[in-house]
């Protein structure tokens, strides 16, 4: 029997849904997963949301930890940009007229980008902590490499997806592909590239907080210590600082975006 494309797609959907349903029956929903004292602990955690620890000592720690977290995130994203922009441009293949060269380049660059981003930042962090010890360098590399892979991938797609007509007009005015890139492609892709980069900065702040669980310092490190002390009020203080940081980036990003697109 020959399967036509549309039938094939439907068949795939049915198989995937069936696989999902089957997986539900294969999870052990039994007692092993549930901590019986957990409900009380959850109650504690929930009720302390109204009583965050605002003592000067804790606030001082929170501000310092926030600063460390932001510094890691910004440094990591800077490295990510240095990796992602050039590789994204190469990987988009837009600078090559010869189709053989383009395909070779796109495939090669995409492979490198996929390698960078398929390993999670936490795993990179473990690797680099083993290599460099608990140093800021380990944290920045651990963030910058996978984020560079992600940015490169997204940039290359955004650069490919700009409207063709204005580019054709530039070419017919005698512009080479490099000039078309700088005067047409990049300006048209830039607002989306920027807004995605800001989104990544947000993710970077959350990731930097998580990385600090490894012991690199920052908000996550403080949260872990407080959790170990069962000091949920303090946990919430640090979490509120994390939320504030992410919101700040959000506001900043929409301000920049408004200036670029308006």
């Amino acid at each position: 029997m020959k399967i036509r494309p549309l039938e094939g797609r439907r068949l795939l959907t049915i198989i995937l849904v069936a696989a999902f349903a089957w997986s539900l029956f294969n999870v052990d929903w039994g007692s092993g997963l549930v901590n019986t004292g957990g409900l009380r602990a959850a109650g504690h955690i929930a009720s302390s949301i109204l009583r965050p620890d605002l003592s000067l000592d804790v606030l001082d720690k929170a501000i310092r930890a926030s600063w460390t977290t932001v510094a890691y995130a910004v440094a990591g994203l800077t490295l990510a940009l240095a990796i992602g922009f050039p590789l994204g441009v190469l990987g988009s293949g837009v600078l090559f007229r010869s189709s053989w060269l383009r395909r070779f380049n796109v495939a090669g660059t995409r492979l490198v980008l996929a390698f960078f981003r398929s390993i999670h930042e936490l795993v990179w962090a473990w690797l680099f902590v083993v290599a460099f010890g608990l140093s800021p360098l380990a944290a920045v590399l651990a963030l910058g490499i996978p984020y560079g892979g992600i940015l490169g991938r997204i940039y290359s797609e955004l650069l490919q997806d700009v409207p063709e007509a204005p580019l054709r007009a530039l070419r017919s005015a005698g512009a080479s592909e490099w000039r078309v890139f700088w005067f047409g492609r990049l300006p048209m892709a830039l607002p989306d590239m920027l807004s995605y980069t800001f989104y990544r900065l947000e993710c970077g702040i959350r990731s930097a907080a998580i990385l600090s669980f490894v012991g690199l310092g920052g908000l996550g490190f403080q949260i872990r210590i407080s959790l170990d002390d069962l000091a949920y009020g303090r946990v919430w203080t640090f979490l509120f600082f994390l939320i504030a940081l992410v919101s700040l980036v959000d506001v900043w990003s929409s301000m920049v975006r408004r200036r670029i697109t308006a």
């Binding site: 054709r168 000039r179 048209m188």
Partner: peptide, 27 residues
Amino acid sequence: QFDLVPNISALHNVLAGRLGEWGLFKS
């Protein structure tokens, strides 16, 4: 459809008519 690059200035769009003449550095 005019085919200008929408998010650079009108002047930049006009000067793009010189891109065939300019060297890459000047561009």
